[in-house]
């Protein structure tokens, strides 16, 4: 047993450097910010607000790399029965008056004023200090009120027994779940699985980053280009913004 655990320090440093080098594609063009890599014992803070910018102009009809990556990361079945969990889905839009068609990924919008948090009786649905909206599955009683309240239909209820979960993303029968903005990866300084998949496939439609950091790529882009929030009239201030709709 000790053989399996005792990885030599050289291997660790080597692996780490290679990984780090791979992440920095070109100077300044990082797909996420390493500057906010958090220590494991550090609590998340409100100084950071995680968000994503989705450029629907780069979003191809029929492509669902982001959805597949999310399903792989969370060990979801990928099925689309009415009872299957879908943390992320591709939505095809067509303007009824002009005929213009586009598509975009839809997931939990991580609102600043989440209705799901307001209605949860136990407080299981909550907003972390850094803006990520999560379900504390330890205290979720499975009443599904948050699913009724979500304006984006982002949440799924687990209808049957689950096995073979990702250790970082526990999920089980009888509780509600939704996109976690890959909090388990974000806390370790990585980007979301969907953004990573979209970038490595070359589409670059999803950009993840810290909206509160004026030097981050995402903050600069939302300050320059016109972006919209879905159902903005509800005043929820989601952390996910879209370009091109």
């Amino acid at each position: 047993m000790s053989d399996e655990i005792n990885v030599s320090r050289r291997q660790i440093v080597g692996f780490g450097s290679a990984a780090l080098a791979g992440l920095a594609l070109a100077p300044g063009v990082l797909l996420y910010d390493l500057a906010h890599g958090k220590q494991p014992d550090e609590a998340v803070s409100g100084k950071v607000r995680w968000g994503m910018l989705i450029d629907t102009n780069n979003c191809k009809d029929g492509c669902n790399d982001c959805v597949k990556a999310c399903n792989t990361e969370a060990h979801l079945s990928g099925g689309t029965k009415e009872t299957d969990s879908q943390w992320m889905r591709k939505v095809e839009l067509k303007d009824m008056r002009t005929g213009r068609a586009t598509s975009l990924p839809m997931m939990c919008q991580h609102c600043a004023e989440p209705p799901c948090v307001d209605v949860c009786p136990t407080g299981a649905s909550f907003k972390r200090a850094d803006g990520i909206v999560l379900v504390d599955k330890h205290i979720c009683i499975g009443c599904r009120y948050c699913m009724m309240a979500c304006p984006y239909k982002a949440r799924s209820f687990v209808h049957e027994v689950v096995t073979d979960q990702n250790s970082d993303l526990p999920r089980g029968k009888g509780v509600v779940e939704s996109c976690t903005m890959c909090a388990h990866r974000v806390d370790r300084g990585q980007t979301t699985a969907c953004a990573e998949a979209c970038a490595s496939a070359g589409h670059n439609a999803i950009l993840f980053g810290d909206l509160n950091d004026p030097n981050s790529e995402i903050a600069k882009r939302v300050a320059t280009y016109a972006t919209t929030q879905v159902r903005a009239d509800l005043g929820l201030n989601p952390g996910i913004r879209y370009q091109g709709i």
């Binding site: 307001d118 209605v119 009786p121 979720c140 009443c143």
Partner: peptide
Amino acid sequence: LGRPDRLIVAMTYFNFKSVFA
């Protein structure tokens, strides 16, 4: 409820902004 065994949780953890609470 999805987790009726967690009724005690519903009686002890409260989010007072919720109508259910």
